[in-house]
Write a protein that binds this DNA or RNA. Structure first.
Lengths: 334, 334
DNA sequence: CTGAAAGCGCTTACAG
DNA sequence: CTGAAAGCGCTTACAG
């Protein structure tokens, strides 16, 4: 164990080293680093040069301790299956890391006991918790944290209390309209895990866009956001009368749809147009690359952390419902 | 920004609070917490009770600062595609969190510029770096860190310098033998990303087990560890003369094989036995559940962190090559 | 525009 | 077996 070995490691440059080199006080360096308070341009330049030279990087442990801000942020997550959750989770971690907050990860498989996971988090002394899918839509989970007086911010969860998301409904409408504008009249749909608000919103968006255009709904099959469910759903969907387009509620399922189409000898997009949702990695490792909706995952992670911190400071649950802009990314699958 | 709001948040219990309640010094509490040095049983009991009562949880920022151990550990990872990398990455993060070390995540898509990613890590002041697949097998990457005098520990990478892995070769042999013992004589194989040492080892294990049993090699197809490549490979594999068993180099591809088999009307395992590798989540969300090799991901993450810390302390690259035990998990796909 | 002092919560020698 | 003191690297009032 390293715990018993002598701490001989290279001491990295501290704020004092920088100060000494420049010939100012540590305070001034701190001001420059944090761009806070007043200091001359010359000072700023000199400090920055010394920082570069010494390879100084701020010690976040010291920082968060000094800020008396050792906030402990819990994250209750499912074992990541799809690309979306993995990416979001990593974004969350990077953000907490950047801000120097302590983060306590707690996994709870859908099959596991959520109550146990929650009390673990509580006993770890978390000041608040961040909830990515799929738990963001379980009133029970939220209620438990509230009972313990811990604010919660969900990501892509049910709106109405601290929540960060995109407008899934509008995005789904927009991508459906894209298909309609390209002349499609029979558009199949693969739904996502219906226990999640975002999945239901996407389906509503699809349906309303079809209605608004005066075309009937295409065949609809249930999915659960997994590639596998996408394979199965597409197989049921690709039967006469054939749809000319298919909208899958996420990229994993859209990629699966492309696979099935190819296997049945259908060209994508000429014989079957396919669109997905999320713009995760699979969107560009599939051929053709997927037309999809991009969610600003990094921004969402950042925003959720900020809202949570604010709620913790104010000792109350936030009711902010932050909706970030999505982007329709047109590639070659539709 | 929360940065400007008053720090009104609930102050969580500190070591002093615990000490006061028990009527001892903070030192004693510290000793009990770290189980270090001598203290009476009565003290331990009392301290633990107070900890429980006050909901005390150690502030890792303060701890790592006091330990003068603000080691910065870099992690160079690819955008996670498969379940294995996500799970490993999260394990790594949990471990760094637990030990209170600062961790700097740096993503580099396979398409991205590795050199840029490396210099970012270096400029962030990392003391050493952890490298999960797929970069653990690129001599260039390792060389660059060494040139900068930063120790590196790879996970499932090429052995010979700080490396943590399982014996992929032996594991592959064992699971192949399981198939042989069940009477299979024509066993197909789906290879993984051949730029990775672990993938090559698995293939060698498969081949040697077949040779040792005196049966010929089955058909072999290339894959890249993705579900999609598994679909394609299996489609090429399931042609006459049909194999009766299929060994995929990871679970994602094995799950894909099951999907294709079912679609072709083949029962698994009676008409086609399928085995995977890794024991990631997909192994149990597939039906039938996969027989596979379990890698002790959490232990691997822990061990890699420890080896790296030791190398940093000793200011030199480690040459430890730690091989952790795997487990053959028999479920219902073979 | 800049600095000296105190403190964040913990740990490690050093004393008893 | 237990404690008082000092320090980890940073930041925030408070002074100039």
């Amino acid at each position: 164990m390293s715990d018993t070995s002598p701490p001989r490691r290279r001491r990295s440059a501290t704020i004092k080293d920088v100060a000494r080199q420049v010939g100012v006080s540590a305070m001034t360096v701190s001001r420059v680093i944090n761009n806070k308070g007043r200091f001359s341009d010359a000072t700023r330049l000199a400090v920055n040069e010394a920082i570069e030279q010494l390879g100084f990087a701020r010690n976040t442990a010291a920082r968060s301790l000094a800020l008396a801000r050792s906030v402990r942020i819990g994250v209750l997550y499912d074992r990541p299956s799809g690309a979306y959750l993995s990416e979001l989770l990593i974004g969350l971690i990077e953000e907490a890391n950047r801000t120097g907050h302590q983060i306590v990860l707690q996994r709870c498989d859908s099959t596991g006991d959520v109550a146990v996971a929650i009390s673990r988090l509580l006993r770890a002394g978390v000041d608040g918790v961040l909830i990515p899918p799929p738990f963001g839509d379980e009133p029970d989970v939220l209620a438990r944290f509230h009972a313990a007086d811990r604010p919660v911010v969900t990501i892509s969860g049910r709106p109405g209390h601290g929540a960060v998301r995109i407008d899934d409904y509008a995005a789904a409408q927009e991508i459906t309209r894209l298909l309609i504008d390209k002349g499609h009249r029979r558009i199949a749909f693969i739904a996502g895990d219906e226990s999640q608000a975002a999945a239901r919103d996407r389906q509503r968006g699809y349906e309303d866009a079809c209605h608004a255009a005066g075309i009937g709904l295409g065949p609809i099959e249930a999915g659960d956001f997994s590639y596998r469910s996408g394979i199965e759903a597409t197989e049921r969907l690709l039967t006469a009368p054939f749809p000319t387009a298919l909208f899958a509620s996420n990229d994993d399922m859209a990629a699966a749809a492309v696979t099935v189409a190819h296997r049945k000898g259908l060209d994508v997009p000429t014989e079957l147009a396919v669109v997905g949702f999320d713009d995760t990695r699979i969107a560009i490792t599939t051929w053709p690359e997927l037309t999809t909706i991009r969610q600003p995952l990094a921004d969402m992670a950042r925003a959720a952390t900020e809202i949570l911190l604010r709620a913790i400071d104010q000792q109350g649950q936030s009711d902010e419902d932050l909706i970030l802009p999505y982007t329709l990314v047109e590639r070659h699958s539709a």
